[in-house]
Each structure stands twice: as structure tokens, then as C-alpha cells.
Computed example of a mutant assay.
Amino acid sequence: MKSFLVKSVLLTACMVSLFHGKAAAESETEWSLNCAKYGAIKPNENPTYQHINCLLTNAAIQADIPPEVVKGIATKESDWRQFVDGKPFISNDNGIGIMQITDKTLPDEQQERLKNDILYNIETGVRILNYKASLTTLPHIKGAGRDIIENWYFPVMAYNGVVQVNSPLFQETGEINHEAYQELAFVKIEKESYMGDTVLARYPFEVKDFKYVDKFIEFLQPEYIVQGVHETTIRLTEGDRVITTKDKVNLRKGPGAPCVEKVLPINTPLLIEGPFEFDETETSRNQFVWFPVKTVDGLYVGYVSSAYIEKQVDTVPPVDETSPEAPVVNEVTDSSVEITGTARAIINR
């Protein structure tokens, strides 16, 4: 269930900024039209799994949120269900639809739309999450941007509620609260978007970082240094270089195709050949996407799961000023009368 504390008037006023300058109607049609190949959405019927995958992915991209995060929330909330037995999915605590929106103050017309319009339900959930991410009272990872999945830990918490039951640690023991909403949502991200082969980075929480006021949490540590964070793969574009992150990664002939072109070892460099695609089997339960790639030698071409690749970062080793470097001299010929050149001085420390 969501704590939909953003009232409808405020939500409307914030809509433009939450979707980075795009008007509401434009943003709604833009992202959903990217999934037009799956056909029209039928009343009182859930779209196919890959159609929903496409909708959640594109709504997240439109709002500049890692799709892995939005998919994790939708999995935790509803297991990607807008309808159950032909009727709107409404939970015991009155959460509505795929994103489980809860706000009894909304007009009846909006309540009905949340129940029957999966596009509106998804977009509303994404707006709420984006609003929560704008709260300056929530901690963040130092130096991390919106593309870092772990940086959404606290907005995901706030999506459900900044309350003691969602505290990252138990105050009495300092142990991890594995049943906190955001912890459960991040487990879904690991299991579904990364196929359980990746463990997302943990914050170095301490009990002293939190203060409890009634049932709510006050954060005393505004930012954290977190090592080993993960960037969403959705921003990969043609020409980007990636590496495989596990051993025996299948390079398939198509997006989710059973035929394997080659089995790749860990740290295999690949080149992205184009935009991501969704699983070719519409009923597939895979939440990740597929990228067309080729090996750097050009011998093999195929599709690889976004769950098993990461962008390769070119690193230049720092200059060691304490070690000598080969001198650079001018060209020497039979007619040369002097030799000139340069060499770095050795710094003694």
C-alpha cells in the first residue's frame, strides 16, 4: 500500500517538474505508445507480461527513474496485476491496481480511473515515487545520481511510508530489518532484474542514524558513502562497451530465443549494437531486457540479457611520480650534432 500523501492538487501542480518538463498528457501518451506493437489494452484484462514489462520500463524512463526500481515496486505491490478475475485488484488495505495506489481523498472519477486504467495507475505510481525522491529530508548516497539503483533505497521506503516498521535496522539490536518494505522491494530487484546473480550494495547503517518520533522516522545522517553500487543498464546505447558479469552467459540469436550463438565467459567485452528489446515470448516472466551485441572481434553477434552485463569503464592508471619514465629524444641521424629530449624528474618522498 502507498502512503499517497501528495494530494491531487499538489500532484497536478508538480506533474511537469516530476516528468522533467513534459506536460502530463504528452508524457502519458509518449511512453505508452512505445509499447504499441503489443496491441490495444483490453478492459478488465491484464496485458501480457512483456507488454507490462514494456509499460513499466517506458514509464520509468520517461520519469528518469531506473526501470529496475519501478519493476521491483510493482512486483512487491501486486506481482504486476491490475486485475484479478476480471475485476480491479484491490488489496485488504485498499491499495488499487498494479502500483497499489491508496488515497481515499481522491475524487470518485480518479478512483475509478486508478482501478480500470493500468496506464494511469502506473503513471500515478511513478509520479508518487518521483515526488518522494525530491524530498530533502531523505538521505542519499554521496555523489550518486538518479541512475544509481541503490540511491533509490529511501524513496522506495517513502513510497510505502517513512515509519518505524520500515526502519533499516531494529533500534533495540542493530540487526537488519529484512521485512522493511524497501528491503523486500530490493530483494525483488535482485531476483528479477538481475536473476539473483547480483547483490545490491548495502548502506553502512548504524542505529544512531535514526530517531523515532511517534511511529515515524527522523533521519540524522543525511548522506552515506556506499561502495559497489550499480548503475541501471537501460541507458546503454549503440557503441557502448560492456562486459559480462558472470560466467557462462548465453549470447542468444534473438531476445530470449532458445538458440544460443555462443557461451561467453565472465568479463567478456562486448559492443552494444542498438536499443534494448523485450523478450520475444510475450508470456515470458523475465523482467530484464535484451541488448543486441557483438564481440569486439566481430565474430559473434546476438542478444544478451541486461541482467548479466555492465558498462565497461575505461580507467587510466594514475601517474607514479616516484618511478622513472623513459626519456623522449629527438630523431637522431648521421648529421645530428646534438641530442635533445625530455624526461620526468623523480620526486623523492
Rank of each mutant, 00 (worst) to 15 (best):
E282N: 09
I347Q: 13
D85A: 06
I96E: 01
T137E: 09
E109N: 07
I225H: 10
T124N: 01
S335D: 13
H51L: 07
L220N: 14
G97V: 03
W31M: 09
D320A: 02
G228H: 12
E280F: 08
T198Q: 09
V328F: 11
A326P: 10
Y131V: 01
P275K: 09
N348C: 10
T124E: 03
L18V: 02
L10R: 13
V328R: 12
A343C: 11
G95H: 04
N94F: 13
I101M: 13
C35E: 14
V16K: 14
A257Y: 15
V9I: 13
K311S: 05
E172C: 08
N121F: 06
F186D: 05
R349K: 14
Q182T: 11
F219P: 05
D79L: 03
S134T: 08
I266V: 14
L270G: 11
Q287F: 06
N286K: 12
E310G: 08
L55C: 14
P107R: 06
F291S: 01
D240V: 09
F186V: 06
K115Q: 02
A185V: 15
E192R: 13
I149M: 05
D214G: 11
P318A: 00
L271V: 12
H140L: 01
N46M: 06
R344A: 13
V187I: 14
E175A: 15
V162H: 00
G97A: 03
G143D: 08
S305Y: 15
R146T: 14
D147Q: 10
V242H: 06
E280Q: 14
T137G: 00
I41C: 09
N160W: 10
N166L: 11
Y181W: 07
K2Y: 01
E280R: 05
I61P: 01
I141R: 07
Y308G: 02
K142Q: 12
L5C: 10
R146W: 05
T102A: 07
M157V: 08
L169S: 12
S78Y: 00
N58R: 12
V249R: 08
V162P: 00
I347G: 04
F170A: 05
S323I: 08
N92T: 02
P317R: 00
F216Y: 12
V293Q: 04
S306G: 15
L11Q: 15
E192I: 03
N92K: 03
Y194P: 04
L18D: 02
C35V: 14
